[in-house]
Design a protein around this nucleic acid. Structure first.
Lengths: 229, 229
DNA sequence: CGGCGTTTTGAGAGAGCTCAACATCGGTGG
DNA sequence: CCACCGATGTTGAGCTCTCTCAAAACGCCG
């Protein structure tokens, strides 16, 4: 079981301009162990090095509502830098290790070093952008259109090659699809010549004809998603 | 057509600590007009005052892929502060007005005024948190569970009252559900006593019994929440 | 009072999810 | 070197839920 099915994996390292090494502390957690509790003073933000951390809020009935599940590479509790106390619970859902970046040292660094502050802002802005795009993607109902959306936004410089970083199962998770559906969809698209499947890559073929319509004759006056939002 | 169905409406105003008034320029756009083009130098970020702006990327085949659709109150192109050129096109999908916050003045202000920089970071961090939560929510398949997720995260201080800011249609859009589905779901939940519907509010009732529905020969063969979909 | 938009309720259909069986691909150890 | 094993990849077949299209009741405002 790998933990690389979340987001932003490849952008994580930039926000610490290599010039600075903040003091940090690594900590290991066992399954079910709390990383922090709601309403307790904030120490700083954490980077998940291994495992998985869920952020949850619990209502007075005792049921928990998941805010976010962070996997390896994800950053957790950025907002805690600007709050005196944590706003949710953080619990390890597998044995995990995290790295704490202390709020005090981080903020001090931002104050003294505008470049560090800018790098942090840039990272956050990038997250916002990618999350918005991801949310937009989830609004696409039809599996094929959702896959197209992903492929179009992840083509390499050549404009037609998409490199798959993980397994197709991981991709399915990122797309919010059952993996079987992704397999089927890719198979159909390949059969119809829209894409070509290679080892660890997918190549987009410029559609021969047929600008809309997905394959089997189907009654679809709508092209994709026009409504809502 | 109202424009208040997007996100974060109530958190937008904080990121400009009232102390500072950045120079800004308002601009109106007609339907279809470009706010900015990809690969052109970045001026700064924009706040949508009225209307709707879509951010899109176009592949060489000419099809556009939507990255995000911003409505009134939303901020657009935060990441442009850290890039020399825009990374996508921005087009008005209705007659709109936007306010430009110049990159130069914004950055200068951040450098001189750490508090402003912190406020901006805090806003971004808040967006990241909310977007992640929203994405988590969209991963919930069953409409009722998705509604529960929303309600649980939006109860007021009393722990059981959720104030509805807009119409139910707006809420449906925010939840990513067809509005009919939301109506039906709320009706069912009310009928079963899980919630109480008031004028502009929803009150959560602590489940009486029936953690996963059973007895009470009700004409409802399904709808437990034991598994997704 | 007459629209216009929201709120409801109804019914049909399609698409994704789930369960299930099987093929493939690596890696491991005998 | 080959058999075994686990995980990924693939395909098949129902099931159910949401989406879409429709139509009507309600509420608000000029």
């Amino acid at each position: 079981m790998q933990d690389n099915l979340n987001d932003d994996r490849k952008h994580e390292e930039d926000w610490l301009p290599a010039s600075v090494r903040y003091p940090h502390v690594d900590r290991t957690l066992k399954l079910g162990e709390f990383l922090f509790h709601i309403d307790t003073p904030t120490l700083g933000l954490f980077k998940v090095l291994k495992g998985r951390i869920k952020l949850v809020r619990v209502d007075r009935v005792g049921r928990e509502t998941i805010l976010y599940v962070a996997s390896s590479g994800d950053i957790v509790a950025e907002a805690s830098l600007f709050s005196a106390v944590y706003r949710c619970d953080a619990i390890a859902t597998t044995d995990s290790t995290v790295r704490l970046y202390s709020k005090a040292s981080l903020m001090a660094n931002f104050n003294q070093n505008p470049a560090a502050a800018r790098a942090f802002m840039a990272m956050l802005a990038g997250h916002v952008m990618r999350l918005r795009t991801r949310l937009e993607q989830r609004g696409i109902q039809l599996a094929r259109d959702r896959v197209r959306h992903y492929l179009n936004l992840n083509v390499g410089p050549d404009g037609c090659t998409v490199v798959l970083s993980g397994t197709l199962k991981d991709l399915a998770a990122e797309l919010g699809l059952a993996h079987e559906v992704l397999y089927r969809t890719l198979a159909e698209m390949a059969a119809e010549g829209e894409i070509e499947r290679l080892k660890g890559k997918i190549k987009l073929k410029p559609a021969p004809y047929d600008p809309n319509h997905t394959g089997a004759a189907r009654t679809r006056p709508k092209s994709t998603n026009t409504r809502s939002r």
